[in-house]
Design a protein around this nucleic acid. Sequence first.
DNA 1: TACCAGGTCCTCG
DNA 2: CGAGGACATGGT
Length: 226
Amino acid sequence: MNGQTVADERAIVKPMNVERLYQQLSKTYGYQHWWPITTVRGERRPSPRPMTSLAAFEICVGAILTQNTAWTNVVKALANLKRARVLTPHSISNLSINSLSHLIRPSGFFRQKAHRLMIFSRWLLKQGGSFVSCAKRAPPKKARTDLLALHGIGPETADSMLLYAGGRPTFVIDAYTKSFCAHYGVHFRSYDDYQKYFMDRLPRSVKLFQEYHALIVAWGKERRNR
DNA sequence: TACCAGGTCCTCG
DNA sequence: CGAGGACATGGT
C-alpha cells in the first residue's frame, strides 16, 4: 500500500498518467501566463521575466489575499494597494492594521489577512526586503520551512510564493488539484502526499510546475461552469 | 436567496 | 492526527 487509494475502480478508464495529462491540458487550454500581475486598473499582465523584486512581492501578497477567495476580489484589493502606492514590504510594514485592512477589504477575511500581510512584510524586511534573493539564498527545504513558520502562511501559500515569485521548483496543491486527482480516482490524506505524487512523476522544472498548476486551475474553472 | 471562491488556524475528541 | 467551525467580500 503506497497511500494511494482508488475510489471507484469501475469509473477509471485509464490510470492517471501525470506527464500525458499535462500534454493534454496544454493542448486544450494553451499557455496560461501565470502568475498574473495586475495593473492599477485591474488589467491582467504576465509576470516579468526575469522576475523583479517588486513583482515578486506582489505575487506573495496575492498569494495571501487569494486564500479561499475568488481572484476577482483579490484584484480589487491589489488595485487599492497600488493606487495608494503601498505595495512594497517597507510601506506595508509602516501602515496601521486598520488602514491596511481597509485597503484590502474587497478580498474578504480582511482583518486576518491584514495581520498576515504585516507579519510577512516585516519578516521579508528582516531578510533584506527581496523575496527573490531570499528564496534563492536559502537551501530549498529551509526556504519553505521558514515561510511555513510565519503565522498565516500554510503549504499552498508557501509553495505558490516559492514557485511563482521565488523561481523554486515546488509543486502547488490546491482545491482544483485535489479534484483533478479525484477525477482520475487518485486520493491522498495530506497536502504533502499530493505534492510528492506529482513531484515524483515529473522532471524538476520551474516552468513545468508553474504551467501545470495554472492548467489545472483552468481545467477546474471550466469544469465548474458546466 | 443561498452558495461558493486558487486556505489557514484553533479547538476538541 | 482529523473533523468542524471561524474568518468576510462580491459574483451568480
